[in-house]
Structures are given as structure tokens and as C-alpha cells.
Nucleic acid binder design. Structure first.
Lengths: 204, 204
DNA sequence: AGACTTATCTACCACTCGATACAAAAGTTG
DNA sequence: CAACTTTTGTATCGAGTGGTAGATAAGTCT
């Protein structure tokens, strides 16, 4: 079998550049001109490798998920439900303000609402966000079986709460909020989580 | 002084239609064709009335803020800081899943990231989101002076937390989450707020 | 009525969008 | 080297983008 002309660019490196463009400008806001320039390739190479603009986004999302999976493994390996929540929000505060990336979260910045012809992009992103929530929920269900969470705790509600706060932190970070602001949100959020030490003082 | 031909459309009604388009498709995703069709006017009328696509968005945002201001007045009139927080998150859960509007929040859906030529849109939206946070913060500062919040409470942190949860709920709603899901997030979030009745059971 | 002012409509502008046809180039294999 | 396969660059496609020029219509004021 003959091999043909070899690809002259590294697909993963190109995906990293594409990811950044989608992250910073959203799906609709990321033009082919921006993408090809950032990736250092011409349009036909892009289409040969990824099929379409949407295919490129999906490939970038896969790579994004892959990058995050190790962090998420660490998060879920926390010794208790509360530790998992702490690790989760803390890692979100760091990653969403990592100067190596655009601020916020690709799964939020990428496009909550899109124009004609891109209607399925928001679904794609939502489904990937839901995956994190599912991982947290299953971890909390496990925690409940382990007796680590009380019987009246609601794993699904807690997971959804954390996932929602994470999305909110993405919005906050994209507005230019600094790392300390996100850490503070994480701290306050954690006091909604079972197992925290109640702060002193009578209130209300 | 002569008056000239009167406008044949109601600017506020047209703005409501434009608002919905921006809400559902975002700034970049909302094309002039969509907007003029929804508003029932032709492009020159739109430009005569609002100056540009960006001017139209700003007018729609003004109207959005105006609509919300009455709700916000009710929220801020809560008898205690905690009541304010309850009213705030509760009203967010309802409004973000109001079937009369697109799901989520215009200030989030409108565009966290935009393409070339729309770079200031995200700033515009962020500044309007920040306004709500400021209103909450000032209300909580007042609550602290009234002795309604303890000395160790941090009004800025609480306001930012609530604002962040609200943004997260916007993302959640835009993913298709129903009203009960948002109410649940509101309920969990409130347990992070000073003055709640701690749930029973030892944890961790 | 007639002058004046403003809005509306049709048609169109230059430009960008995502995507592709085609030929030249760069490899591998026999 | 020659046959073959795939990638690359140039040049371009039709459709859609935000925005506008110019003529006409619809009012108000004298």
C-alpha cells in the first residue's frame, strides 16, 4: 500500500490553537480565517483533517476533555464528598483563570446560543458540561453508600449545584474576574456543602 | 416646526422582538435578516431608529434592565439579607425558565465571546451583570450596618456568590433544565448563606 | 393647498462567511 | 526511476454579512 504525501502539521498542536480561538471568540465568532491563521494551515488542509468547522470544534472539545480528565480524576479521588467538592471548585478557580488559556471555560464560552446553521453547537457543549455533573453525581452516590454523606443528602442536587457554580465561575472569569475572586466564590459555595464548620455568630 | 412622517412601528414592541432574537441566538448569531424579520421592519428603519446592530442591542439591553428593575426592587426590599438572597435566587429560577422568554438570561446568552468587530459586546454585557452584583452588595452592606448580618460576614463575597450562581443558573437553563432543577439549585445555594437553619445529622 | 421633514421601501454596496475544484508537490512502494 | 496516493497552496465558489443611497410615501405646519 502506498502512503501518499505525509501531513506537514501536527494535528494536536493545530487543535490547541483552534481550541484557543473557539475559547476566545465562541463558535460563531471564530471565523475560518482566524482558525486557519492560528493553526498555521490553509482551509483545504483543515477540511481534509477535520471535515468541517463543526468537526474541528468537536475535535477541539475532545482534546479539551482529554486535558481535563486527569484533573477530574484527581478531583473524584478525594477522600470524602466534601473533599471532592473542595477539589472541584478549587481546580475550577485555578483553571478558569489560568493565564495560559483564555479566561473562563471553553464549554461555556464556546457558545450558549448560536446562529442559523449552528443550532446543534449549544447542545454539544451542554452535553459535555452534563458529563462533569454526572461524574460528580455518581461520586456522591458512592459517598452516600459509603456513609460519607447522610441519608438526607441529595447527590443529584449537590452535583447540579457544583456544576452550576462552575458554570457561573466561567461567566465570572470571562468578565475579567481575577483568581482570588473565583477562590472566594468557591469558598462561599463550599459552605453550602454538607460537612462544613458553621461560622460563629447568630444571624438573622 | 414640521414633524415629518411618523414612525409606523412601535419601538418598544420592536425592541421586545429584537431582544428575543439576541437572547436566543446571541449577538453574533443574530443576523440583520433575523432581526428585521422578527421586528417586522426593514433594515433602513432599523438603522434610522437604533443606529447600528450594536445600538439595537444596547437599546434591547436597556429595555431588559427596565423590565427587571421592578423585580429587583422587590428583591432588594426583602426584610433581611437572607430574605433578599431567597427572593433573588427564587426570582432567577422563575425568570430564567419563563416560557414567555427564551431560556436563560439575556446578559449571559447574549454573548460571552464574540467575533471580530464585536469585541466590546462581552464587556457591555459584563458591565450590566456587574450592576446586579453591585445592587446586592450595597444591600448587604446596609444589612451589616443594620446588624442584620454579623460582623464577620462579607457583603462583597456574598453578592458575588449570588451573582455567580445566577449566571450559572442561566447556563443551566439554556441547556434545557426545567424550573424545578433551578429551584433546587437555589435551595442548595441558600444553605451557603448566613442565617439558614442547619440541616440535622453529623457529616464528615 | 403647498412647503417641509422624516420614515419607509427597493435595490444594492463591498465584504466576509464556510467550503471546495484543481493542479502542483511530497512523500512511499514496486 | 516511475507509479501511486495523499496533502498542499491558489484561486474561487455561491450565499449571506452589516450597512446605505436614492426615490417615494406619509404625515404636520403655515
Amino acid at each position: 500500500m502506498v502512503m501518499g504525501r505525509p501531513r506537514s502539521f501536527d494535528a494536536d498542536m493545530a487543535l490547541d490553537e483552534a481550541m484557543e480561538v473557539f475559547w476566545r471568540h465562541g463558535y460563531d465568532g471564530a471565523s475560518l480565517a482566524m482558525l486557519t491563521k492560528a493553526m498555521g494551515i490553509k482551509a483545504p488542509s483543515l477540511y481534509a483533517a477535520f471535515g468541517s468547522k463543526e468537526g474541528l470544534l468537536k475535535a477541539a472539545l475532545d482534546r479539551y476533555a482529554q486535558r481535563r480528565s486527569e484533573h477530574m480524576r484527581y478531583v473524584l479521588a478525594g477522600p470524602s464528598a466534601r473533599a471532592v467538592a473542595e477539589r472541584f471548585l478549587s481546580s475550577i478557580a485555578e483553571s478558569h483563570t489560568d493565564p495560559a488559556n483564555p479566561p473562563g471555560c471553553l464549554l461555556v464560552q464556546g457558545g450558549l446560543a448560536c446562529g442559523a446553521g449552528s443550532e446543534n453547537i449549544p447542545f454539544e457543549l451542554a452535553s459535555r458540561r452534563a458529563q462533569t455533573e454526572t461524574e460528580l453525581r455518581e461520586r456522591f452516590i458512592q459517598a452516600k453508600q459509603d456513609g460519607d454523606l447522610t441519608d438526607d443528602a441529595d447527590p443529584a442536587a449537590l452535583a447540579r449545584f457544583l456544576s452550576t457554580v462552575a458554570s457561573g465561575m466561567g461567566v465570572l472569569a470571562s468578565s475579567g474576574a481575577n483568581r482570588d475572586a473565583l477562590r472566594e466564590v468557591a469558598r462561599v459555595s463550599l459552605s453550602a456543602f454538607p460537612g462544613h464548620r458553621e461560622r460563629g455568630g447568630a444571624m438573622l
